[in-house]
Amino acid sequence: MQEPMLSLQKVNKMIGRNHIIRDLSFDVNPGEIFGFLGPNGAGKTTTIRMVVGLTGISSGDIRINDFSITKDYKNAIQYVGTIVENPELYPYLTAEKNLLHYARMSKNVTKEDIKQRLELVRLSHVRDQKVSRFSLGMKQRLGIAQAMLHNPKVLILDEPTNGLDPAGVREMRDYLRKVAKEENIAILVSSHLLSEMELMCDRFAIIQNGKLVKVEEVSSEGQMDVASFYRIEVDEPNKAKKLLLDKYVDEVGLDDEIIRVNVTKEKIGKIITFLTNNDMTIYEVIREKQTLEDRFLEATEGEVS
């Protein structure tokens, strides 16, 4: 097991009498994209502000590459690249000067690095244009270039796909997946766009009212030993139901001539072979995906009641 790159340890935040964040703990590992989900007002942005040191922590600790953000800020923050909410760039500076501005604030960032990052986010052709003339997508890309400029080990993005068009969202997703894998960066992404997170993240945490509700792997249901619902369309559903009840499962649903079973991935393979061997024609087998949205609602509703 590798060391987590970002680690929240029993973090609490009080503002006046309000307990905004309660005992929040989770880890983000190198090379993974970690989704941070929650309804509006759950404390996502506050948490992100604490991680990057914009806001103080009432109790607990946040460690970045094992440096405490409260006690060893300078060492901790040098590993962090971030976009907090919108990409906050200087509209009256050109793209290149915006990057130059941040390059001067970090060690060992050369003009060559600026050039490369601009190329990577495909903004080389507008490097001498003022940012005020950029589209939101371009600003967002420049924001990413800014965050990646000093080769951070942790990337922290607050709502990175806000206001992007579908093509922009997809591009952002592909880019983040690429840098996570190729540069082995730990990425923390907060969002309330669940379908988006589902496609982007490896793991996710759900928070509500400042408390962690659950941490899960996005793709857990696709694994061999995890049960899911499968729908099977077959030419003789009644016969198939009977055979399956005898041999494989305790419960078989039959709805509108379609068989529905709850089994593991391993078992569904055997079922398919079994049915075929019994001279039945299988037209279609579909795994019913439980979407992140279902899981999110399930998790947050349980919390409310």
């Binding site: 914009l54 300078k74 923050i77 907090v84 760039l89 200087y90 941040y102 604030m105 970090s106 060690k107």
Partner: peptide
């Protein structure tokens, strides 16, 4: 006003 203070502060400059 522009929100740029955030990116200014999350660097190793104190």
């Amino acid at each position: 006003n522009k929100g740029t203070i955030k990116l200014l502060l999350v660097r190793s400059a104190s």
